[in-house]
Write a protein that binds this DNA or RNA. Structure first.
Length: 416
RNA sequence: GCCGGGAUAGGGUAGGGGCUAUCCUGGGGGACUGUGGAUCCCCUGACCCGGGUUCAAAUCCCGGUCCCGGCCCCA
């Protein structure tokens, strides 16, 4: 027997069905928000990923040299591809609102909520510099989680690079990039050591102040009241008010940095309220990326959400759909009536039912046992009575059955 | 890449040097070729891979693979 490759999953029908329900719901929500679905190649030039994110990304790719000597990789993220697509079409109607739910690959050590192959939902808005697009994207992200039944089970933490820069400048901090890098390490090193590093870069007083600002979390208004007068703060207040109109609430948490490699404004992460799992989704504004890929300078804001953490949290909350096979009708066949049964099965299929039928010729008892195992709602038994245009329709749940005219099958089955 | 814990039929498990590897469940068939979920019978089917120690290895040792989790990283 061959084993699976590390970090890859086999998905069997029972769990694929649950997955499909969740994925369809997510896609439907994106469509409700007026986003349009795209698809893209699973492989790209390795170089494409170096442009945006640098070498450490490249080391975590499934890459290879193809027969033409090109360095190729399975995509570890979608943003460079989307930016490439955007850059090569100048006739797109702005704002561009795209979503997609592709598979991606990252060569990392698997652990809870992290695999080597996974699905990641992506949604982006291009061409809007204002906070309205940030609000729309955040609202979509939250509506997706809410509609899946996670309302109240997660917290949307928002930070903002521009606000942070403004604060740091006011405090007289010059080494801004370096400060961000330290902030990113905040939860990974002891508190005292963190403060020490901050003070090394920003100075003793400023370091202390930054540390205090980082520990304040709450509504935008609450956090701003601790910070004082702020230009960017006005935008964030507007963001908060817009989101209120969408019926959504966010938490301002300035300790969120998100790698920050290319984010230029708002950044956000949705976290499990119980703090058990890693971030469910993350995103932000990245106004410089499209031009990096040769496009016109284009403001952009978006997010990505992997399926792994989402599945973990939904399972913990008991809201992951049931993992079972399902079919509407099983057509059982009495010997000698296969042709008639086939015609009836096809008729029901055309009417939109999910219809399975016996292919084995085994005993009726076995056929019904099979119907039971595949969770058929109804079994149709095709035998002698078909000569009078009738079949037996058996409700597999109640066990009740009646002989009905073929033409009336549809209503009988739709009764429950 | 590093660290910890695991791996026994399709799924869940017992057994920790010795005779035909335990039990539950599932799958196929039958009792019962026009009625499923029950019962009974039969069949099916496993010691992750490679090496070592030993008269003898599922069991002990080494290496690898995969799984679960943690670190780094998280695009």
């Amino acid at each position: 027997m061959f084993q699976k490759l590390k970090g890859f999953r086999d998905i069997y029908p029972e769990s694929m069905r649950a997955r499909r329900i969740v994925f369809d719901k997510i896609n439907a929500t994106a469509r409700e928000f007026g986003f349009h679905e795209i698809d893209a190649p699973s492989v790209e030039h390795l170089e494409l990923f170096r442009v945006k994110s640098g070498d450490e990304i490249v080391e975590q790719t499934f890459s290879f040299v193809d027969k033409g000597g090109r360095s190729i990789t399975l995509i570890p993220e979608l943003t460079p591809t989307v930016a490439r697509m955007l850059a090569s079409r100048k006739d797109l109607i702005k704002p561009v609102k795209w979503f997609s739910f592709p598979k991606m690959w990252r060569y990392e050590e698997p652990q809870s909520g992290r695999l080597r192959e996974f699905y990641q939902f992506n949604a982006d808005i291009f061409g809007v510099a204002g906070i309205e697009a940030d609000a729309e994207v955040l609202a979509l992200a939250m509506e997706i989680l809410d509609s899946l039944g996670l309302k109240g089970k997660y917290e949307m933490r928002v930070s903002d690079r521009l606000l942070m820069e403004e604060i740091l400048r006011k405090l007289g901090v010059e080494r801004i990039e370096e400060t961000f890098r330290v902030i990113d390490k905040r939860d990974k090193i002891p508190e005292e050591q963190f403060l020490g590093k901050l003070q090394d870069i920003a100075g003793s007083d400023a370091g202390l102040e930054i540390s205090e600002i980082l520990s304040v979390k709450g509504t935008v208004s609450e956090v701003l009241s601790k910070i004082g007068e702020s230009e960017r703060g006005e935008d964030l207040l507007e963001l908060q008010e817009l989101l209120a109109a969408y019926g959504k609430e966010i938490t301002l948490d300035l300790s969120i940095v998100r790698g920050l490699a290319y984010y230029t404004g708002v950044v956000f992460e949705a976290h499990d309220s119980k703090g058990e799992f890693r971030a469910i989704l993350g995103g932000g504004r990245y106004d410089n990326v499209v031009q990096l890929f040769g496009g016109e300078p284009t403001p952009a804001v978006g997010f990505g959400m992997g399926d792994a953490v989402l599945e973990l949290i939904m399972k913990r909350e008991g809201i992951w759909p049931e993992e079972r096979m399902e079919v509407d009708i099983f057509v059982a066949i009495v010997p000698g009536f296969r042709k008639e049964a086939t015609q009836i099965a096809m008729k029901l299929r055309k009417e939109g039912f999910r219809v399975d039928m016996d292919l084995t010729g085994r005993s009726l008892g076995k056929q019904l046992k099979y119907a039971n195992r595949i969770n058929a709602r109804y079994a149709i038994i095709v035998g002698e009575e078909v000569r009078e245009g009738k079949v037996v329709a058996k409700n597999m749940k109640s066990g009740g059955q009646r002989t009905v005219e073929i033409g009336k099958l549809k209503e009988v089955i739709n009764e429950n």
